Simulated scan of single mutants.
Amino acid sequence: MTGTQKADDRGQLRRRTVLAAGGVTVTAVGVGGAFTATASAGEETAGADACYKLTSETTEGPYYIDADKIRRDVTEDREGIPLLLALRVIDNETCRPIRDAAVDIWHCDAVGVYSGYEDMGNGGGGGGGPAPTESPTGTPTDAPTGPPPGGGGGHQEPTDDTRYLRGTWRTDRHGRVAFRTVFPGWYRGRTVHIHVKVHVDGAWTDAGYEGGNTCHTGQFFFSEESVLASAEVEPYSTSTTTRTTLTEDTIYDQSGTAGGLLKLKYDKKHIAKGVVGSITMGVDPDAENDNTTM
């Protein structure tokens, strides 16, 4: 039985097409430069993880854009601390890697702005204004502005054509995929996070990824220690937006790795040199989890 037939039998097939930008074909490429060695280390760390129970599903949030770019380096012109995101996708029941899945990631930039939604701002005027005198902490004291708090509010249509810090790539035979990006910033009402979707049973073509179903929608989270360290580095340090801590966040379920908490490696004295974040996601390939209304 083919993947498409399987999805048809469940009545859950959601047609989805991701178009490659500029005629880029779907082939494996390195992430380039000195970062390649770091990526390998991160992926090996993820591969050594034990089989996890089902990774927490979370809301898609209002700023997902389908038909995004097929690429591993999503940085474009965004400033920030280099982040190598090394992921592994496994079947949560069999513990076997899921090969040829399409993995989407998207997140805000260092000052809390999402591409495609720049008009929404970040609650801090794009990070302008004087730098804070101390590391951001505490519970927000006024009404959230910018992206809806909690990442909810239903899907919103893009306001512009920017697409930085968004991308899709395929898992290899070990279920691994890595993205080169920057450490995300924060906006009012949410802790620092990265969104993720995993699609299976589709087909990879020269045009991109077609068909299949979304078996996982989630978010990745960062330790408080790493976020406070990032807040000392420009442009993060220019943000005047009140930050929601990891324990205050309404989306993170406080369950550690199963809830999307990344394993991080970085020089604690020089986080600006770069961070490797890794995690193994246990997903149910037979599930349909868009989570657009959570």
Rank of each mutant, 00 (worst) to 15 (best):
T38R: 13
V31T: 09
V29G: 13
A48C: 00
R16L: 13
R15Y: 12
K53M: 05
L19F: 14
V18C: 07
A37E: 05
D49E: 10
V31G: 13
G61N: 05
E60I: 03
R15Q: 13
A46Y: 01
K53V: 06
V29S: 15
T38Q: 14
S40W: 00
L54Q: 07
G47V: 04
T38P: 00
S56I: 01
G61P: 01
D49H: 04
Y52W: 11
C51Y: 00
G23C: 08
Y52H: 13
S40D: 06
R16V: 09
A34H: 07
A20W: 01
G33Q: 14
D49G: 02
K53N: 13
S40T: 09
L13I: 06
A41Y: 05
A41H: 05
A34R: 12
V24K: 12
R14T: 11
V26S: 11
R16I: 09
V18R: 06
A28R: 13
L19A: 12
A21I: 07
L19E: 14
A20G: 15
E44P: 00
A21G: 08
R15F: 11
A21W: 12
F35I: 09
S40V: 11
F35Q: 12
G22N: 15
V29Q: 14
F35P: 02
T45A: 15
A48D: 06
T25H: 08
T27A: 15
V29N: 11
S40C: 01
T55M: 01
F35N: 11
V18H: 09
T55S: 14
T38H: 10
T45K: 10
G33H: 13
L13T: 04
T55R: 00
P62A: 09
S40E: 13
V18E: 12
V31P: 03
A28W: 07
T58S: 10
G32M: 03
T27H: 13
R15S: 08
E43D: 02
F35A: 13
T17H: 13
P62Y: 05
G32D: 02
L19P: 05
T36K: 07
Y52T: 12
V31C: 11
A48N: 10
G32S: 06
V29M: 03
T45M: 08
R14M: 07
F35L: 15
S40F: 07
T58D: 04
G22K: 10
G47R: 14
G32Q: 01
G47W: 04
V31A: 05
G47F: 07
R15H: 10
T36C: 03
T58V: 02
T38A: 13
G42L: 07
T36W: 03
G61M: 03
G22M: 04
S56G: 02
S40G: 07
T58I: 00
P62G: 02
A34C: 07
T55C: 02
G32W: 03
L54R: 08
